[in-house]
Write a protein that binds this DNA or RNA. Structure first.
Lengths: 204, 204
DNA sequence: GCTACTATCTATAAACC
DNA sequence: TGGTTTATAGATAGTAG
């Protein structure tokens, strides 16, 4: 997508790798956001740069966004209406409502002397609960994602440790080799049992 | 990027939303992979579709690569490497009818004679949607937790590898010590340079 | 839900601040 | 490290099968 076609393999030049990282990372975040908005899905993107930094994108509330948009759509159907319509409207907007709440509303609606205010109160209460619930869900998802990040960090650390250990083994083996070579040079061949020598080399 | 510029807002038409979802999701995964390869960073992408599926990309194959290399190096446990092989890629969960249910609800509520629906009907509809939503949320949480489990498994594996590596180093050191002792016993002292010998022992 | 085909739009590589 | 700019590669909307 640039002046030149680029092979997809690690960019060895550090500065251009960094430049590309910055550009493509931004591009990825943008794309993620677009996908989540256009298609109404949840997207989580975590980018762990080699330098400990974490870049992330998360659209953790588009599920509730579905509901919100849907409710808005329903509300748009009829704005001006009598109290019954008004109540129905409330119902459209209350996917999260407990059944009992709506049943209460239904009973009230069947009465001639409907108390608007009480239903309004109920709706208000419901909305409050809904808001709290949404926040709780958001935090829950957030915490789960945090866990994933933590695990990733641990993983990184362990990989590093593995590398160090492997290097250690390599170093030890090299030194053993050197040592063996030294011994072979310094020691009269007749002093070495060749079978034993072979066995010793098998360690490597 | 197409025949026409599109606004970044929810695509209301279902089928084109689905089409776009498919295309852009693939594009996002591709971009993620490219970023991770080009810039040598770890990228995790989680996409939760409204239909209950999780599409996942994780560049943690670098991990897989490390493990595989190590396994080849140790070429001892076929079992472990077999387990490592299927670590990656997206998981598909079938079933679920959240989308269908929402469609149904949408149709019903979009009908001009929506007023004819009884409140009981609406309550029923709401309950259905609520149930589906709950299931969806449960599934989403489940998938996140699965990701965490995955990480946890990888972590355990790495810890195991660390142990093996440490044991190896221990073994190598012991053998070196034995060997040195052997050499000291078998070789005439006059053949050894004591300074060199001390230096050699410092490796251990 | 794909795959294929364009026409177009978008991202970005390179170069320069 | 982060903005420009520009030429070009790549992604994708619309469409058809």
């Amino acid at each position: 997508m640039g002046r030149k076609k680029v092979e997809i393999k690690r960019i060895e030049d550090k500065s251009s790798r960094q430049a590309t990282f910055s550009k493509r990372r931004n591009g990825l975040m943008k794309k993620s956001k677009q996908l989540s908005v256009l298609c109404d899905v949840d997207v989580v993107v975590l980018v762990f740069s080699s330098r400990e930094r974490l870049f992330e994108f998360s659209s953790t509330n588009s599920l509730t966004g579905v509901i919100r948009r849907y409710n808005n759509h329903m509300k748009a159907e009829d704005k001006v209406s009598a109290e019954v319509d008004d109540t129905e409207e409330s119902k459209y907007a209350s996917f999260m409502t407990m059944e009992e709440l709506l049943q209460t509303a239904e009973k009230k609606l069947e009465e001639p002397d409907v108390d608007d205010l009480s239903i309004t109160d109920l709706v208000h209460l419901e909305n409050q609960v809904e808001t709290a619930l949404t926040q709780t869900r958001f935090r829950k998802t957030h915490l789960l994602i945090e866990s994933i990040k933590n695990f990733h960090d641990k993983e990184k650390q362990l990989i590093e440790e593995n590398k160090v250990l492997e290097d250690d083994i390599g170093t030890i083996k090299n030194r053993e080799e050197n040592e063996m070579a030294m011994n072979l040079n310094n020691i009269a061949p007749t002093h070495m049992d060749s079978g034993q020598q072979r066995e010793t080399l098998n360690f490597l």
